[in-house]
Write a protein that binds this DNA or RNA. Structure first.
Lengths: 151, 151
DNA sequence: GAATCTATGTCAGACTGCTGACATGAAGCA
DNA sequence: TGCTTCATGTCAGCAGTCTGACATAGATTC
């Protein structure tokens, strides 16, 4: 039933499987974050700021894989609700370094517990060697897709 | 600089890497499909129909990882533009089996060439064994995330 | 056979993220 | 110094996707 000549066979397509895995991960994260009133991008933003305080809007956008316009909208809401702070004036250039407030940190702490449970479930039955192998494979795909192809 | 106790370390998080890979794949596909005036979901729908003719709206939605409402909107547009056909009345129940028209097949043919180039680029330097390993790893993640955890 | 449950197709409204556009500051180059 | 290029922050408009809701058909249960 497989039309090898006609299309990309979905059952053996690594791209399709990657999309499936990503979709499953996203769904699982949304499930645990919803009770906290937080979206995946929302969480990603807070997590990035916790690990790298002072990131700018554009840097956060790249880290969360959205456009800087999208991140800007999110940051304005987070700032309005007191989860993050940005200086009114840029210390240098136009770049506004963003930081978590204590409230933002508390909010993140709850979310982290939820997200960690998903991640550990995903790592489930994988051995340490298998995790390392998956890591290597995904990194390879990313590098190839971005055209950093060193033949 | 890594706060191991505080959060999920992004640099060593398989979830984050999975999201990154998926984002890179999506971007690459959008790039090659845009000139054809086609979105990723649009393409997924046609590809699914080519491989499994007669799929219903809900089945297509599951295959493309969107809701059936979203797929319904897309199908109406595709039907209006003559890429697919659905019977006016359901042969059985409410399920409307969908099929590609010749026009839809031609459109898909062009897209397939583009998508295949992305996929082969992604597989890039991977050996056959590495591909199999990646496959196995992704399947494991999906199964674990969906809670089909057979201890 | 009737009641309940489940799945489907569809409509409407809301939200999220994206593209396009603009002004501004920094960095490199003539 | 002036010019070009690039990155940034931000606003506005648009497309895609989602949630909520409803009616209906099949399957299940009693």
């Amino acid at each position: 039933m497989k039309q090898d000549g006609a299309g990309v066979d979905l059952d053996t397509s690594l791209g399709y499987l990657l999309k499936e895995a990503s979709s499953a991960l996203r769904t699982a994260m949304e499930e645990v974050l919803r009770p906290l009133g937080m979206s995946v991008t929302h969480y990603s933003c807070l997590e990035l700021l916790a690990q790298r305080p002072g990131l700018s809007n554009s840097e956060l956008a790249r880290g969360a894989f959205v456009t800087r316009q999208t991140m800007n909208v999110l940051l304005q809401a987070l700032e309005r609700d007191g989860y993050v702070i940005r200086p009114a004036e840029a210390p240098v250039g136009k770049v506004l370094p963003t930081r978590l407030t204590p409230r933002g940190r508390r909010s993140l702490a709850k979310a982290t517990v939820a997200v960690r449970s998903v991640e550990s479930r995903m790592l489930g039955g994988m051995s340490e060697a298998e995790r390392a192998e998956s890591f290597r494979a995904l990194r390879g795909m990313i590098r190839a897709l971005r055209g950093e192809d060193r033949t």
